[in-house]
Design a protein around this nucleic acid. Structure first.
Length: 281
DNA sequence: AGGCGATCCTGAGGGC
DNA sequence: TGCCCTCAGGATCGCC
């Protein structure tokens, strides 16, 4: 499932294809995946516009058009954006292709999302995009670890919710999802159920440092291979190799050789090592 | 008002 | 082989 590293890798792979290119036309198979206010559907999807840049904040990626309009792509759990040429894929890959753009060079860009937890959101200006993004916490990858630590110390103080719930809240920190929240907490040796307000500043710093390190490494590797993640050219990621707790319930801890356990927290599977991540401290 | 649970959605995978 | 059940969870909404 795509998290920040997958989205960043996707953005990097799309950037050279899209920047400076015009989206000639767009075909919409399922209108409900597009959110827009006022704009006509094709205009909202930047049909006829030239792409000036691609940007990202947390798990959201946006295409910025020459005239300043912006289109946010959210991948949700199963979303993908791919560049293709030639005949469309057959079979399962040919399903759930909700929006298809035709590029100047006759290649196509396809937004596909079987589960439809993702979607596309149009903004009339880059300012309105930035305004929407200001409701999110600092980007977990673009923000320096020191500043991230300071932010966590301030934000987590006085919050009673479990620290993992806070880390998953995009208004607290933008970019962490279920996988990397577990990984960051394991690396920082903090139990996911610890009340956020009870963390020491050293622990907040450790979480910030480890989250930044893990996301950076995963982004360089092209994201997680879990499920069906692929980049814009259908290449899988390699980051699954660096997972220490996620998907390893019942397996030995790589640090202490104890057994990785899992619980449900806010409806999410949460994996941790009960020996390395002490609940009582 | 912060926090939590329900909800959406479909494919993969396991059991029989 | 094929059917049925369970599980996966990001973001939003409503309720306590």
């Amino acid at each position: 499932m795509p998290e920040l590293p997958e989205v960043e890798h996707l953005r990097r792979s799309l950037d050279p294809v899209l920047v400076g290119t015009r989206l000639v036309r767009v075909a919409v198979r399922r209108r409900s995946v597009v959110a827009r206010s006022g704009q006509l559907l094709e205009q909202a999807l930047l049909a006829g516009s030239r792409i000036r840049s691609t940007v990202r904040h947390g798990k959201q990626m946006a295409l910025i058009a020459d005239d300043g309009r912006a289109l946010v792509v959210q991948l949700g759990m199963t979303g993908s954006v791919t560049i293709e040429s030639g005949a469309p894929p057959k079979g399962m890959d040919g399903k759930h292709r909700h929006v298809i753009w035709e590029l100047e060079d006759a290649r196509r860009m396809v937004f596909r999302d079987p589960r439809r937890f993702g979607g596309l959101t149009a903004f009339a200006s880059e300012d309105s995009l930035r305004s929407a993004w200001s409701a999110l916490g600092p980007d977990a990858l673009l923000t320096a670890p020191g500043a991230l630590a300071k932010h966590l110390v301030q934000t987590l103080a006085g919050r009673n919710r479990p620290v993992k719930a806070a880390l998953l809240d995009q208004a607290v920190l933008a970019g962490l999802g279920n996988i990397y929240a577990d990984e960051a907490l394991f690396a920082a040796q903090v139990h996911p159920l610890r009340p956020a307000s009870c963390l020491s500043s050293a622990e907040c710093s450790a979480i910030a440092r480890e989250a930044h390190r893990i996301l950076s490494e995963a982004a360089e590797r092209g994201g997680s291979t879990l499920r069906d993640y692929r980049d814009a050219f259908g290449r899988p990621g390699e980051a699954v190799q660096i997972h220490r707790v996620y998907g390893r319930t019942g397996e030995p801890c790589t640090r202490c050789n104890g057994v990785i356990e899992s619980i449900r927290l806010q409806g999410r599977t949460t994996a941790f090592c009960p020996r390395c991540q002490d609940l009582s401290t």
